[in-house]
Design a protein around this nucleic acid. Structure first.
Lengths: 141, 141
DNA sequence: ATTTGTGCAAAACGTTTGCAAGGCG
DNA sequence: CGCCTTGCAAACGTTTTGCACAAAT
C-alpha cells in the first residue's frame, strides 16, 4: 500500500480514494479474479464505476503490482503479485478452478530461448487446460 | 482434408461446401490468424458469413484440427495443427510478430506436474510477451 | 425426409472512450 | 490553481445467437 502510494507519486499520479479501495481489495484476494468480480465485490459498499475498475487495473499492472492473464473465453483474469513468483496455471475448463505450480525450471528454459533470439521478455503466461481430478471423475460416470 | 471428411462423418456432421472452403484455406496458412482475417481472405471469392467462420472454427478445434490461442487484446488467434507439435509462442507486443519455439522439454515438465495432481491435460499454451529484436532496438533510440 | 448447416441481422459480452464534473497536490 | 481522475453513458470490436431457409445424407 505504501509502495503503491510511492509508485504513483513517482509518476505524478494521484493516490485517490478509489485507487486505495481497489488496491486494498486486490491485495486481500488470494485468487484470480475478473474485473467484473472485483466490481461486484465493491459496488455494495462503495460507489465506484466499472470504468474506474478497468482504469485502475491498468495502472496497477503497469506498476507491476498486478498480473494479467488471458485464460480464454474473452475475459481477462487478474492476480495480485505481492512478492510471489511467476507460476504455471492448470485451468480446469469444467469448473474453472485454477491450480498453480512453480515454474522455475520452465522459466530457465524460456529465458534461454529468449536470449538466443534477442527477445526481450516482459512477462510470460503458462496455461494448461484440461480437467481437474474431480471433474475428470465426474465425466467418466 | 480426407481426415476432416471422416472425422465429420464419424460424428454425424456434414461435409459442406463452406467447411471444405474454410478448411482448405486454413490448412494452406502457415501462420496464426484471426477469425476476421480468415473471413476477409475468403469473402472476395466466396459467399461465406462470419457466423459460419466462427462455427466452423469451433468444429475444427473440437476435432483437434485447429488450435486456439488467447494472445490477449480480446481477440482469438487460430492455428492449424496439421501434424506439428505444440510449441511456445514468443509474442512481440509491439509488432505482434509471433516466434515459435519447440517445447519438448517444457512439455515433459508439465506432463509430470499434471500427473502428480491427476490433472487431465487437454491442451496447453505457453506465451511469452515482450519485444522482438527489431522492436527492442527501435525503442532504445 | 430428416437432420444438420447457413446467412442474416440483432444481441451479447467484456472493454474502452469522450466528456463534464470532481478531487488531489 | 492546474492537472489527474472519476462516473456516466455511449461506443467499440469480437463473438454468439435466433430464426427462416438451404443443403447434405
Amino acid at each position: 500500500m505504501v509502495r503503491l502510494k510511492e509508485e504513483l507519486e513517482m509518476r505524478g499520479l494521484k493516490f485517490t480514494r478509489q485507487r486505495k479501495i481497489i488496491a486494498q481489495k486486490i491485495f486481500s484476494m488470494k485468487k484470480h479474479f475478473t474485473a467484473d468480480e472485483l466490481y461486484n465485490s465493491l459496488k455494495k459498499k462503495y460507489r465506484i464505476s466499472r470504468a474506474t475498475i478497468y482504469r485502475t487495473l491498468d495502472v496497477l499492472s503497469s506498476l507491476g503490482l498486478v498480473e494479467v492473464h488471458n485464460f480464454g473465453q474473452g475475459k481477462r483474469y487478474y492476480e495480485s503479485i505481492s512478492g510471489k513468483k511467476s507460476h504455471c496455471h492448470f485451468i480446469c475448463t469444467s469448473c474453472m478452478k485454477i491450480i498453480e505450480f512453480p515454474s522455475d525450471e520452465i522459466e530457465k528454459i524460456i529465458t534461454n530461448m529468449a536470449s538466443q533470439h534477442n527477445f526481450k521478455i516482459n512477462r510470460y503466461s503458462i496455461n494448461v487446460y484440461g480437467l481437474c481430478e474431480e471433474c475428470a471423475r465426474k465425466r467418466k460416470k
